[in-house]
Amino acid sequence: MVDLQKANSLLKEFNSIVNTKKCRKFNKNEPLKVGIDLGTSSIVLAILDKNDAPVYGSFEFAEVIRDGLVVNYVEAVQIVSRLVRDAEEVLGLDITEAATAIPPGTIGNDKKVVSNVLESAGLEVTCVIDEPEAAACLLNMTHGAVIDVGGGTTGISVIEEGEVVLSLDEPTGGAHMSLVLAGYYAITVPEAEVLKRDKSKEKTNFIIIKPVVDKMAAITQGMLAQHPIEPLYVVGGASYFEDFVPTFSKYLKMPVERPDYPQFVTPLGIAKASIRTID
């Protein structure tokens, strides 16, 4: 059973830490867990204590991932290195290892490149898991489905008895919203990305990008046709629009829930799922 209230409390605390750029008090003699989420629109660093409480977090906007694949390796390494270095200064300790995640179905060299980014930044990789699986880990989900609406893809993991029984990933995400906005307003994609985050224009922008949201819901509907299940939880930065969940639920004709600060669910889940810890 998902404890959404507990998850939202952790997410709220993590968001506060990220915004203040300060760490929460922690025992330096106890191990910490580190997760790094290489997203399409940003790279997020999350650090938890041994009880999975947020200790430190930071992120940097980036365009180094496209549809789940690393397209600018050098910049990705530079950003991860910068985030780790800043964290070390704030925490007063060395960070030598971290967990990370990939879109469902990523295989072969594409999967290895994500690990290589962390290794090139001087980190040992403790764990590589699917992004929706990481989100399910934070939510303590043992039954249901997580729809991870990222910058480049919509990833879905179906969980039964605590195990992932079905995973899929389709190339429709926040980047496609930006493309639609860019075309509608005749502006560049980077300009559209900034416009998409403008809360004062959210209502108008959502009407324009609604077909992309419908496509994400259609992907989910296709999964449900193969494997009917509930409850459904949607996470990921592209789902932050106020009308996203009502529109998603209406399309599917079934309830969908979304944690607070959905952009941080997967990064925190990655850290929580880390097999080993840093000292």
Rank of each mutant, 00 (worst) to 15 (best):
P246D: 05
P171G: 06
E230V: 06
A175S: 12
N19P: 02
L10D: 15
I79A: 07
Q221V: 00
P171D: 13
F14M: 14
P246A: 00
D130W: 00
I79N: 09
V117K: 02
E242L: 10
A217G: 02
A218D: 12
P103E: 02
I129N: 09
Q226H: 04
T100G: 09
T220Y: 00
G173L: 02
A7V: 15
V18T: 08
A134D: 10
G150A: 06
L166G: 03
M223N: 01
E163K: 15
L83W: 05
I47A: 01
L83N: 12
G122K: 05
L83M: 06
D279E: 08
A121F: 11
A62M: 00
T266F: 06
D260M: 13
S58M: 07
M216W: 07
D279K: 09
F248T: 04
D279C: 15
N15R: 13
S115W: 04
C127Y: 02
V55G: 00
I187V: 14
K12R: 13
G144N: 10
G174H: 04
L118W: 12
F241G: 08
P246V: 03
D86N: 14
A186H: 14
R82C: 02
P190G: 01
D279M: 08
I95C: 01
I208K: 08
P231C: 13
V90H: 11
A62P: 02
E161K: 15
N15M: 01
K111Q: 10
S58H: 05
T154H: 02
S239L: 03
G108R: 11
A238M: 11
K21F: 06
C127F: 05
G150K: 05
V117I: 15
E202M: 14
S249V: 10
G35L: 06
A53Y: 11
V146P: 02
D130H: 03
P132R: 06
V265Q: 11
L123A: 05
V128A: 14
Q263D: 04
G57T: 04
K253S: 14
I65F: 06
V71M: 11
E88A: 06
I207Y: 13
F59G: 00
A182R: 07
N109W: 08
G155D: 15
V80S: 03
K111N: 10
A218I: 00
G222Q: 13
A217V: 13
T204E: 13
V235N: 04
V146S: 05
V84Q: 10
F264C: 02
V74G: 05
I207S: 11
I65Q: 00
I147T: 10
E230C: 04
V128L: 11
G236W: 10
T20P: 01
D243N: 10
G144K: 07
L268F: 03
N72T: 00
I219A: 05
S274T: 08
R85F: 07
T188M: 10
E88D: 06
F59N: 12
G151M: 00
V164R: 12
G222V: 13
P190I: 11
E133P: 00
D52Q: 12
V245W: 01
T153M: 10
T40N: 11
S200N: 10
F248A: 03
K250G: 01
F244P: 01
E88M: 07
